[in-house]
Design a protein around this nucleic acid. Sequence first.
DNA 1: CGGTTAAGCAACGGTCCCTA
DNA 2: TAGGGACCGTTGCTTAACCG
Length: 289
Amino acid sequence: MNCLELAIPPLPQLVTIGHAFWPPGQKHETRSFDVYDMLFVLKGTLYMTEEGIPYEIKEGSMLVLEPGRRHAGHRPCEEITEIYWIHFVHPAPVRTMDSGKIPWSFPYVKGTNLDTAPQQQVMYIPKFTSLHIPDVLPFLERMVELHQALSPASSLPLQTQLAGLLVQLQAAAKMQYASRARQLCDQTIAYLQQHLTRPFDARHMEQTLHFRFDYLARCLKTYTGMSPLQYLHDLQIKKAKSLLENMELSVSEVGRQVGIENDNYFIRLFRKQTGVTPGRYRQIRNGKA
DNA sequence: CGGTTAAGCAACGGTCCCTA
DNA sequence: TAGGGACCGTTGCTTAACCG
């Protein structure tokens, strides 16, 4: 399934939302404008074409029309068709990606107290997919309600409902189409993040995730290129970097905080991953190099 | 003198490759 | 998929040098 990759921040901003029942014979107008148009079909079928590509949006499906593209209804509805539409503004998608190839667990660099701008991140929404309607309907209904009684008290909740809906769509894209190997890779990453400060224990990981260690390691390597231990070290060194930059802890204490008791080993590992020793790294980052 | 870093050594365990 | 073996990385320990 194709997903649109949108850069955040900023978060998408809602322009309008609507709920309608289209009678048989009604067809979407032909137009091109600079907002995203998200269409959810609850009953019936809507026929939409975008830049010459036809879509049949059946009951329980959604389609995202992109800004700046020409879209039109290429066939009238054949029955009473219940739809929700949402218009929101946001820069054009960075790219379109197959959901199976999205690096869902790629770790972002976290902001620190020295940063003055948010780190650039991305979000994904499915371009065209079927949905579990009970998951998204509460968001749609609440948004219509808030939009109808728009006021200073409801405008922020309305925008947060849109964000919640987008979270739901992203989660659906991730879960519905991820292979078992991909899911196991994500579970392994979650395990490593949760057990960051504990000594690595392959047997405990097997028992927790209910798969043989060999298989879990292979799944992880397929999508991250790293073994479990390598991935764990990557997480530990990232956390150590943050502690060195932002806390007044000794190198030994930083090592302990990230789960590496042995000073010597911590320094060697840090140097191997970053090319510099922990003390040197702190000097460089604090501008004392 | 204390904190940090480097290096050598040995034991252990993980990884990789091959075979059945 | 499992097991065996070679290789290599990790880990803990020790010693020593450097620096403020």
